[in-house]
């Protein structure tokens, strides 16, 4: 009980720090100069409608590269961490028959979800959304499939294949930025195209598709790994 009380005091004093932090926080009335710059000449420089995507993919593309590596590392760590020992593979598990509704619903829903996912990361630079969101949607679609028929398993080699290839091409696209444009991960390799339609804003859509594929396959991998270990114990 004393421990709980002690923790309470700790949190109270921690909140004191944050209160001081907020002290001279005043609501902003106008954009600071960094975002005004982005707002003004992003259309001429990158030609993407969705400002957030342009920042995420090009201006701060290096962060996204880091971001993708985190997911990649998380996936590979979980990969070798929860490795299934060969001996446990054969153990069968008593399957609870999935309900009828789930099976039929998944047959209809899964293609729709995939379509939505593709749409989201295809025109990430036009409408809100992008690689991460599209990939996540695709992954949830895959999970739905896994739920629907539990005895089937994720083909790890396929997904890690997609993942690596898309990652590798992402890096190559970045390098292209150096040779053809002004810097690593610059999107002016391809023409900016007409503002607003699908093939505009240089490399952004291309990069985002690859990120989408990569995130999608990684998350499926992670879920697959977690699911498989389930088999291990049955």
């Amino acid at each position: 009980m004393v421990r709980k009380f002690l923790i309470f005091i700790l949190i109270a004093s921690f909140s004191v720090i944050f209160i001081n932090l907020y002290q001279n926080f005043k609501g902003q009335d106008k954009l600071n100069d960094l975002s005004t710059y982005y707002a003004e000449n992003e259309p001429q420089e990158l030609g993407a409608q969705n400002l957030v995507t342009s920042i995420v993919v090009t201006y701060r593309g290096f962060d996204t590269l880091g971001e993708v590596t985190i997911l990649f590392l998380a996936a590979s760590i979980i990969g070798f961490f929860l490795k299934i020992k060969e001996s446990d593979k054969q153990k069968k598990r008593d399957l609870r028959k999935t309900s009828e509704i789930l099976e039929t619903a998944s047959k209809i829903l899964v293609p729709l979800i995939f379509l939505l996912g593709v749409y989201v990361f295809a025109n990430g630079h036009l409408t809100p959304g992008g690689g991460f969101q599209g990939g996540a949607i695709m992954a949830s679609g895959m999970v739905l499939l896994l739920l629907a028929n539990p005895e089937k398993n994720v083909k790890h080699s396929l997904f890690s294949g997609i993942e690596s290839i898309s990652g590798f091409t992402y890096v190559i696209l970045g390098l292209l930025g150096i040779y053809f444009a002004y810097g690593f991960l610059d999107n002016r390799v391809l023409p900016l195209g007409q503002f607003g339609n699908i093939f505009s804003a240089g490399l952004i859509p291309l990069i985002y598709t690859f990120i989408g594929l990569k995130v999608g396959s990684e998350l499926t991998n992670i879920v697959g790994n977690l699911k498989e270990t389930q088999k291990e114990t049955e």
Binding site: L34, Y59, R60, G177, D186, N187
Partner: peptide, 13 residues
């Protein structure tokens, strides 16, 4: 200085 994304520092990493 190495500029990623081809822009000067405050606007890119």
């Amino acid at each position: 200085y190495i500029y990623t994304a081809g822009f000067k520092p405050p606007f890119s990493i």
